[in-house]
Structures are given as structure tokens and as C-alpha cells.
Design a protein around this nucleic acid. Structure first.
Lengths: 339, 339
DNA sequence: TTGTAGGCGTTATCAG
DNA sequence: CTGATAACGCCTACAA
């Protein structure tokens, strides 16, 4: 099927391309009569503007890019959900790229999006990201940018986050209030700001409740997987048999911990209590049900797109935009692992 | 930062745009000397071709569209994973749209992608889709199309599927071989071909093993959710107390079933056995661990993109392409719910 | 080896 | 109210 163009309509009607274009965009300076005939013909020919040409003329693609570490991930897939829903409502399409937690890939993907000339970029950094040259490149090109969840403090862009330190503090405090005296922490990798903040929140809670902090009780994930959860659980039982509570960086890992405990008949919450982070769906269906920190993922997606949209609109109107940070609330969900 | 164009390079070097263009594309009819100077300047100015202009000229966007029912879904997110990884390797970007299992949304999204002039479309139909006018529109526009998982038989396009009927047969057979005499089926919604096929596989297995088929043992999901699993589990216990096995359309629903049984102290697998479908991650971490049918999701994504790529290449070279169907293998995973 | 010219389809400006 | 013209940035016959 051949695509219909303005030219074809113009020729068929014996008028100029200009007039057709104006008629279709409902300009006031076109007679009702021609407007009507143009509209009718356009409809019957299923005319839709060639977006390639429109992009070239208007210099915008009505497309935004999204780079996230992992798609198969309860938290991130919910964020995607929020972003694409909100984008679609506002006439934008979303190109999704997965960095696989690799800085190298992330760099390439930023380049791809820049070359694609997306109107804006939303991203959450990979665990590998300890260098932000590529992100600075986005700013240098004056492409609107929003960071969410795993962000870099050193990049001046809008951000959508939770208060990881506070949330971690509350999670640890929750364990303390449930009677835990010796609390281990399975933390995230060394780079991500949120892993650092959660660790700091854990530490602060201990201090505040006069529980001595001990580095030997901190276990550091490399890959943040279910398997690591099992591994660290086994290490904790061996190395620190009197630990009675664990605060885990994220539910996936916490589920690994529970899995190990179940297999080795270690009673949760009686022998040891566990609290996770993020409120993955499976946390409410496993046995025992996992206590965790609820994190508004869909809402983070929506908020991220809104911030981006605001910046994109400012850029278009050439009015200056000051990056903003939106902090979303979290809350402790008590289930069976901390009863 | 102002974008660099061929024109700028040409002017700076005092040569024509054509020569610059050729030099950058390494045409043989440009002297080494000019080629070198062009390349150097282009690099130092960080020249990248304006993709809008390239799109317009070449009439391709190097972008494909993907429409799926749900992003927050173990199976679909794995498919996405496979598609975007493979697309990126081949120089394509992927726009993802979520139909939310709604035909209306799906129709709009097809239109969006057509208007965006993506080079190809990959899709899995929503549960609502009982009308395929919009899909036919894709074919009419001669846009390469691949359907996967939830497909329409009536659309002549490439397809990537599993043999749902066979897989369901094997799942039901598995229950029979484990001693089940009265097997219920919680099936998917009425429209999707794969729900129909799985139902047929279930029925066929009963026939083959001389177990009378009874419509009262078939429960039909509307939304395919965890909650529906719980609901149907309660109905089954009440209405059909002697059912000793259940074959469930998908793991998410099966987990709902198990959840109800756990809460009501109905012993699985002793009182009743359960088998799911799709091998969601959580199936291996719940108690008891869910037996299921493994379905190669990532591979389906990869295969889908490959088929699409093949068709896109044919279209470009103007050589005819005959749609193909790829069927991927499945296999039963025995865990604790059918011991 | 280099450059000219035309065109991809749309939009904006400005003159009639 | 209508239309001619240029421009967006790139590509590619074809000419020189």
C-alpha cells in the first residue's frame, strides 16, 4: 500500500500543498469549503503525516529513551509500566534499553539514544556505574534527563527517589523493636547510592538504639540475586550463629535467605527475623511471608515521566528549567518474618 | 550544544557536502587526503548523522514496535528481554507498548506504531482480542509482523509459539500418572488461542486415559490473577471436594490456589496435586514448590526478533518473504506439588 | 576525484 | 483565503 502524502491530496484536489497542510491543521485562514474537501479526501485515503518528515521539520521525535538495569525485575518492571502509561497519555513513545548492570552497555545505550535524537532520557544507573562521563554528555547535549532510584548525586538533573536512608533506618528499627539484639545486614554493591544509603540507615538505627555496629555483620552482594541470599544466609549461620535479625537490601535476596533457612529448618521469625526491601509480589506468597519496605514503583515511573515532560516542554518554549527532586514515601509492611 | 551537520564540516573544509558525505561513508571515489581530513574534523566535532534526515531519506527508522499485554509479568518481561537484547545487537531500537489486556488500547497502539513508521511490529494479543481488523491493517501497510504466544490463527504472519495443546496434555498426563483420578482445570479466558489449546490438551489427556470429562470441573479465569486462583481454589473445595488434581493455566494463578490451600490447611500434594504453567520464578521459592511447564520465554523473544529481522531485510531488498512459524519446546518440571 | 542538483514530506514565511 | 518558496539534513544519480 502506497503512503498518502500532502502532495497527492493537493494534486487530486487541484490545490497547493500549503493549503492542504493548513486545512489539516485547522488553520483559521482556510475556507470552510476547502477545509472540508481536504479533510474528506484525507480521511478516505487514510492520510497520516509522515513522522520522519515531521521529525525533521520540528526537530522533535516525540520519543523518550529509558535505560534500566533489568527488565525482569519486580521493581523496575513496575516503573516501566508507570512510564509507558504516562508517556502514551501524553503522546510520547518509549524506547527501552537494558544495561544489564553493566557500565559499558549503559554507555553505548546512552550514545544510541543521543544519536536517535530522543526528546528526553529517563534512567536508573547500573551497579557498575562509577563514572558519569556519559551522563554528563546527555546534559552537554541539552537533552532533558531524569534519574530515578539508582542515581548519581553528582549529576545535576531532576530525580525521583525514595529516602533510602530513612527507609532502611525504619526497617532496622522494626527489627530492633521486635527484640533483635544482633542484626546483620546484607547490603547491595558498593557503587549504587541507594545501597550506600540503606547501609547508612542500618548503621544509624543501630547507633540510635545503642547496639554496637560490627563490620563483620555486613555482607555485600555483588549481583543481588536469589542465590546470593542463600549463600549469605549460610555464611551468617556459620560465622555469626547468634545473629537474630537480618535486614536485606532487597526482597529477591531476602527470599534466598528464607529459602536457605527453610531448607535447614531454621525457624523464622523465632530463631531469626528477616526484613526485605521493595515489596516484591512474591514476598506475600512465600512461607513465611516476608516483612518488607514498600516502595512506590509505578508512581516513581509516573513521577519520572512528569518531570521529564515538564523539562521537555520548557526546552521547547526556550524557558529555563531548574531540575527538581521528588521524594516518594515508603512504609514498613509487617508480615510473618518479623512477628 | 549545537548539532554538527555535513554542511558545517563542508564549509569548514571548503569542500562540498557531497564529498563530506561520501568521505564519511568511506566511498571509494574520495581521495585519501580529503577522507582523512573529513574524518578528523567530524570526530573532533562529534558529528553524528541526524537520524531524522536519514529516516526521511532511507524511509526506515531502525526501530521496531512491541505490543504486549503486560510488562509486570514473568513470562512477558523475559520475552522483552530477549527482544531488546537481540534488537540492539542488530542495530534496532524497540518501542514497547502495553495493551493491558484491552482490545481498545491494543488498536490504538497499533495505530501509533504504524504512524510512527516503525520498520516492524512484534505482538502478543490481549485477552480481549476477538477482532483482528487492526492487525490486518498492519499487513495491508506491508509492515513486517511477528506474532508470539497469544496469536491469531487467522492472521497470516510469522509466529513464535509453543505447542500449548501438547504441553497441556503432558501436564495433565503428569497429574494422572501421579495418581489423580478427578482433575479440575482452571483455564484462561475464552478468546486467547493458547487458553483454548491448553484446555483442549487437558481434555485430550483425560480422554486418552479414560477419565470422563466434566464441564463442571473447568473454571474460567477472566483476569488471570493471583486472586482468581484463590477464588477458584475455594470454589473447587466447596463444589467438588473429591477433586485430587488441578491443572492451572499459569503459575500466577496456581500460586493463588496454593495460597488458599495453605491458609486452609489443605495438604498439597497429599490431599490434592497442582501443576501450573510457564515456570515463573516464584514457583520455585514458594512452599510447597510448584510443579509446572517450562516455557522458553527469553528464547521466544530472540526467535521473534530474528523472524522479524528476516522479513524486514526481505522487504528492503524487495524479495518476497513467506511467513514462518517457529515452535519452541517445553518440558514438565516436577517439584513438590505433584510428588 | 569532486561537485551540482533534486528530492524525501512537512512546515513556516511571506507575498499575492 | 491561497500558494510559491525555502528550509530541515541527508543521500545519490549524474555531470564536470
Amino acid at each position: 500500500m502506497k503512503e498518502t502524502t500532502l502532495k497527492q491530496i493537493a494534486e487530486a484536489l487541484g490545490i497547493s500543498i500549503t493549503t492542504v497542510s493548513k486545512a489539516l491543521k485547522n488553520y483559521p485562514d482556510v475556507s470552510e469549503k476547502t477545509k472540508k474537501s481536504v479533510l474528506e479526501l484525507a480521511q478516505s485515503l487514510h492520510y497520516t503525516p509522515n513522522s520522519f518528515a515531521v521529525n525533521l521539520r520540528t526537530k522533535e521525535s516525540r520519543t523518550v529513551g529509558l535505560i534500566i538495569p533489568e527488565v525482569v525485575h519486580h521493581f523496575f518492571s513496575n516503573v516501566i509500566n508507570g512510564i509507558i502509561a504516562e508517556a502514551e497519555k501524553n503522546g510520547y513513545l518509549v524506547i527501552i534499553l537494558q544495561s544489564n548492570e553493566s557500565l559499558e552497555l549503559e554507555k553505548k545505550q546512552v550514545e544510541l539514544l543521543i544519536n536517535k535524537r530522543v526528546d528526553g532520557i529517563i534512567m536508573s544507573l547500573s551497579n557498575d556505574s562509577n563514572d558519569e562521563q556519559h551522563i554528563k554528555e546527555i546534559l552537554k547535549r541539552e537533552i532533558p534527563l531524569v534519574q530515578f532510584d539508582k542515581i548519581s548525586k553528582f549529576i545535576l538533573s531532576s530525580k525521583v527517589v525514595i529516602n533510602d536512608q530513612k527507609a532502611a533506618f525504619e526497617a532496622t528499627e522494626h527489627l530492633i523493636k521486635k527484640g533483635c539484639k544482633k542484626i546483620a545486614h546484607i547490603r547491595g554493591p558498593v557503587n549504587p547510592q541507594n545501597a550506600i544509603d540503606r547501609f547508612l540507615g542500618y548503621k544509624k538505627a543501630l547507633e540510635q538504639y545503642n547496639i554496637p555496629f560490627d563490620y563483620n555483620l555486613v555482607y555485600t552482594c555483588k549481583n543481588v540475586t536469589f542465590e546470593e541470599g542463600k549463600l549469605f544466609a549460610s555464611q551468617i549461620v556459620k560465622e555469626q550463629p547468634d545473629v537474630d535479625g537480618i535486614f536485606v537490601i532487597t526482597d529477591l535476596v531476602a527470599v534466598g535467605v528464607l529459602s536457605y533457612f527453610n531448607e535447614h529448618h531454621i525457624k523464622v521469625p523465632n530463631d531469626i527475623k528477616v526484613i526485605g526491601f521493595s515489596n516484591w509480589f512474591m514476598s506475600q506468597v512465600i512461607t513465611p511471608k516476608l516483612s518488607t519496605v514498600d516502595q512506590p514503583s509505578y508512581e516513581m515511573g509516573v513521577a519520572s515521566f512528569h518531570l521529564l515532560l515538564e523539562e521537555m516542554n520548557c526546552r521547547k518554549e526556550l524557558i529555563p528549567f531548574a531540575p527538581r527532586t521528588i521524594e516518594l514515601p515508603t512504609n514498613i509492611i509487617e508480615r510473618e518474618t518479623t512477628l
